[in-house]
Design a protein around this nucleic acid. Structure first.
Length: 510
RNA sequence: GCCGCGUUGGUCAAGGGGUUAAGACGCAUCCCUUUCACGGAUGAAUCACGGGUUCGAUUCCCGUACGCGGUACCA
């Protein structure tokens, strides 16, 4: 048991964009697998045909790739336990469900959806808003437990649509050790007879996870806290199938909550509050609804991953910035928080900012090129890299290079002269005129050369250098913003710098 | 309703029977910089509430409240 190779899995259902919380589940799985030199499996849980969305699987795989959290096995690359799509494993599940029936742990149920609905509305009261198909109710329903054996045989032989339900004991304590929460206990009397095999022959999640985790030799099962209430069903299934010795260790991850109020973070919250929730852009093929993702908004994958790691986990020190390798080394399920964490976009931006600061300018430029193209701007990647280096310390997102450096790509149309107008004078005007001619003669247009000539002329004309800098900035940028002004001039180059001075002068005189 | 899981500053959180209850984000003010930003400094919590246990509880126990999750032939 102890030396079994660690195998974990991420088992999303391909129903849409990949949510933040999903990526964090991937992350924790990935970290755990790497730390233990184990395998990380991607399994697609597409057992609900009605919710299947084309393209969602490819999208998920691409998200993992972008985050640098690729799986070792999965539908995209195969592996020793293929297939990795539950729809393709459909035939495997029935036998286990039948086996459970044979051993008295499950039963056939012939109730139609209408009958189920009827039962629920009949039993529903103020006190019991959600009647369950449980050990008491099942006696009044149409199933192999309430019907005479011959009747069941007849129905089955006639091909009557039916499901297979687990037969939950009337009152039994089921407990297990959660790696995060410790001992968790349930009484089986409070959980209903979950459907294991649907009428269409597909397993439900409950049967499929257990069967596949067993077949794929999963040793540790990590999933969101929303699964905790159904854990007893899974535990019992492992037991009833005779596999209890191989049952994985469970860890139910705390939820990621919405920033305002409470509750699970949903895509809707992102739309409402103006931040991404999906890892990457997602276009829903059914509704044509488009949702922006972290990647396209200008987040760096390593920042995204780092931020997610700190949402519900920390190593107990003050360190907040971790490389993936450091996370692999230091991660521990025991230090994962028990309570959910509210998502905070400000903090996410801070993380991104930290990584942008560290990022190579060439890389930032490459990431920013598509944004430039969208703006219809032509520029060399080298030029953009220089600009990235100049403005990155004020960018939280890669895309903000535009907000902080747009003037590198176009001349100002208007000038925010309000701040300098009162102190503007004929002498200053003359300074810029003279300096423009000096610049013409400059063979070296380096930062220091430009700055030197600026100061020299200012001094000779008896003007305070500081009083000239702001006007110069506004001439180049149009306003009071941007990197150090001589850096801007150097980057713009001689010709453009002079052009901008000459173009701006009338606005200053006006 | 029932079952489960939670509850340390606005947010993420460390800590854990005796502390000035870390740190980060955000916010405010200040310094640096005649732009903005970066950087630096300073400020803000009696640890949900009520009972215990104890010389002493934010830390342990029990309740209560509140929040969340589940309660589907969805995952």
């Amino acid at each position: 048991m102890e030396h079994k190779k660690v195998r974990v899995r991420f088992a999303p259902s391909p129903t849409g964009g990949l949510h933040l919380g999903g990526v964090r589940t991937v992350l924790f799985n990935y970290l755990f697998a790497r730390q233990h030199k184990g395998d990380f499996v991607l399994r697609i849980e597409d057992t609900d045909q009605t919710r299947y969305v084309a393209g969602a699987e490819e999208y998920i795989i691409e998200c993992l790739r972008w985050c640098g959290l690729e799986a070792d096995e999965g539908p995209h690359k195969g592996g020793p336990y293929a297939p990795y799509r539950q729809s393709e494993r459909k035939e495997m599940y029935r036998q286990y469900a039948e086996q459970l029936v044979k051993n008295g742990y499950a039963y056939y149920a012939f109730d139609t959806p209408e009958e189920l609905e009827e039962m629920r509305s009949r039993l529903k009261t103020e006190e019991h808003p959600s009647p369950q198909y449980n050990h008491i109710v099942r006696q009044q329903m149409r199933n192999s437990l309430s019907l005479p054996a011959e009747e069941t045989e007849k129905l089955l032989a006639a091909g009557t649509p039916h499901v297979i339900r687990i037969k939950m004991p009337a009152s039994e304590e089921v407990s297990f050790t959660d790696m995060i929460r410790g001992e968790v206990q349930f009484n089986t009397g409070t959980v209903d007879d979950k459907v294991l095999l649907k009428a269409d022959g597909m397993p439900t999640y409950h049967l499929a996870v257990v069967v596949d985790d067993y077949l794929m030799k999963i040793t540790h099962a990590f999933r969101g806290e929303e699964w905790l209430p159904s854990a007893p069903v899974h535990i019992l299934l492992w037991r009833y199938l005779g596999w209890e010795a191989d049952m994985p260790q469970w860890a139910h991850l705390p939820l990621i909550l919405r920033p305002d109020g409470n509750g699970k973070l949903s895509k809707r919250d992102g739309d409402r509050l103006g931040f991404p929730v999906y890892a990457m852009n997602w276009l829903d093929p059914r509704s044509n609804e488009f949702t922006r993702g972290f990647r396209e908004m200008g987040y760096l994958p390593e920042a995204f991953v780092n931020m997610l790691a700190m949402l519900g986990w920390n190593d107990g020190t003050e360190q907040e910035l971790f490389t993936l390798d450091e996370l692999v080394e230091k991660f521990s399920m025991e230090r994962v928080h028990h309570a959910g964490a509210k998502f905070n976009i400000e903090k996410a931006n801070w993380f991104n900012h930290q990584y942008i600061l560290k990022a190579d300018n060439q890389r930032l430029a490459a990431l920013f090129m598509p944004v430039l193209k969208e703006k219809g701007v032509q520029a060399s990647e080298e030029y953009v890299a220089t600009i990235a280096g100049l403005v990155k310390e004020r960018c939280n997102l890669v895309n903000e290079i535009w907000d902080h450096g747009f003037f590198f790509f176009r001349q100002p149309e208007t000038y925010d002269t309000a701040a300098v107008k009162p102190k503007w004078s004929e002498v200053k005007r003359q300074f810029f005129l003279d300096w423009a001619s000096v610049l013409e003669t400059l063979s070296d247009f380096s930062l220091s050369a430009v700055e030197e000539s600026f100061k020299q002329l200012a001094t000779s004309m008896n003007i305070k250098v500081g009083e000239l800098q702001l006007p110069f900035r506004i001439m180049l940028c149009g306003g009071k913003f941007g990197p150090p002004v001589f850096n801007i001039a150097e980057t713009l180059g001689k010709h453009e710098t002079i052009a901008r001075i000459m173009k701006a002068l009338p606005a200053f005189d006006a």
